[in-house]
Design a protein around this nucleic acid. Structure first.
Lengths: 205, 205
DNA sequence: ATAAAAAGTGAGCACTCGCTATCTATGAAC
DNA sequence: GTTCATAGATAGCGAGTGCTCACTTTTTAT
């Protein structure tokens, strides 16, 4: 059968299984339908096991938030090596960014943010992870555009692009995250790229 | 006491009270906490009264969606008479737009959209209202920018601005909708206005 | 080998939800 | 005024929730 595992390994294994299952449930079924029963079923674990490691459902959700936030930061890092001097390069970068924003991990993250909007306790416990994520994303943006835009404009551009993609994720008519961009969205991203490149400060060598 | 009312008036009165109460509950407490009990309490009406007019909770929510969609369109219409030729005018227009997007009615609308993401039945019933709203917003945008931008760019700009503001509404750290914009957001909107005006096709008289 | 500790199980509790069945109040028709 | 259909109020049901607890299984220490 299965190999013999140390207690710590067993423990970490089920915890990870629970976190992954929670993230999956959040992305697929939404916050309200992410019941402890559903999570345990998805993780292949009993209810008792869940409540041994997480004192409450909310604790499980907060831990999951930290988990997926880390995944999201990692995904963002992969974007850095894209050429952003040309319009085409910027459009490609936006495409990747869009894929990241629509990924299941980010979908999970958004579900938690929405839930936090009407749950003060959850909101408070989620705050550190949110600030952390924001900071890390700015760092990535600095690597991407740092030499092209003044620091002030950098934060502004980041805000525009990320918030727009987030907004799209919410209001997309098609619930499938892997759906193609759609004509209007494609045009919007292209236009944004064009305008940003046009706005680059002129460098006279 | 209250004046004597006809049956139809009584009926319409409680229906309107229920719709308003539902919208308020959605905006303040979120989708899951918008229970029939809570709605009835807020409307000052009994459960029996609710289920006389709406066969199911979902029917009540769908009806509320139509209700607030109408309110939102009306709010958007008020924007039209703003000067969008100058950067300052555009920034003011964005400010108004932001106020509309963060209004309780729009918050209600967003809450329903999010819920629809993980509820196929609700999603389907909400679709007509969504398409309607989208269409009406494009019409308003046509009045605002119709003479300034080609039709293709118009839809793109609309998508950028609205989706960005929607994204902001979700990810704002402060749950208070009436909170001031915040430094980065203000810069982002200003930058966007600047870039759009720069992008206007040159008119040589 | 055996005792102790840690991890995992699943039936069950207290509670809330959407919804229904039953009853009362009220305006309309005559 | 009496009758009757409709609007609204009250009480309750069954399903499903987060969480607990007495218990079994697996790992570690002696």
């Amino acid at each position: 059968m299965t190999t013999r595992r140390t207690q710590a390994e067993r423990r970490d294994g089920t915890i990870r299984a629970l976190l992954d299952a929670t993230a999956q449930c959040l992305a697929e079924r939404g916050y309200a339908a992410t019941t402890t029963t559903a999570v345990c079923a998805a993780a292949g674990v009993s209810q008792g096991a869940l409540f041994r490691h997480f004192p409450t459902r909310q604790a499980l959700l907060v831990a999951t938030a930290g988990h997926v936030a880390r995944l999201n930061v990692d995904a963002f890092r992969e974007l850095v090596d894209e050429d952003v001097d040309t319009v085409d390069g910027l459009v490609r970068a936006f495409g990747h960014l869009r894929a990241v924003v629509l990924s299941p991990a980010n979908q999970t993250w958004r579900e938690l943010l929405v839930a936090a909007r009407s749950d003060a306790a959850l909101r408070e416990e989620l705050l550190p992870a949110r600030l952390d994520l924001q900071e890390q994303m700015y760092a990535v943006a600095l690597e991407l555009w740092g030499e092209r835009l003044p620091a002030d404009d950098l934060a502004a551009v980041l805000s525009i692009v990320v918030n727009m993609l987030d907004g799209l994720a919410f209001s997309a008519l098609d619930p499938d995250p892997a759906a193609p961009p759609g004509r209007t969205v494609e045009r919007a991203l292209a236009l944004l790229a064009q305008m940003i490149v046009d706005h680059y400060p002129q460098e006279h060598a």
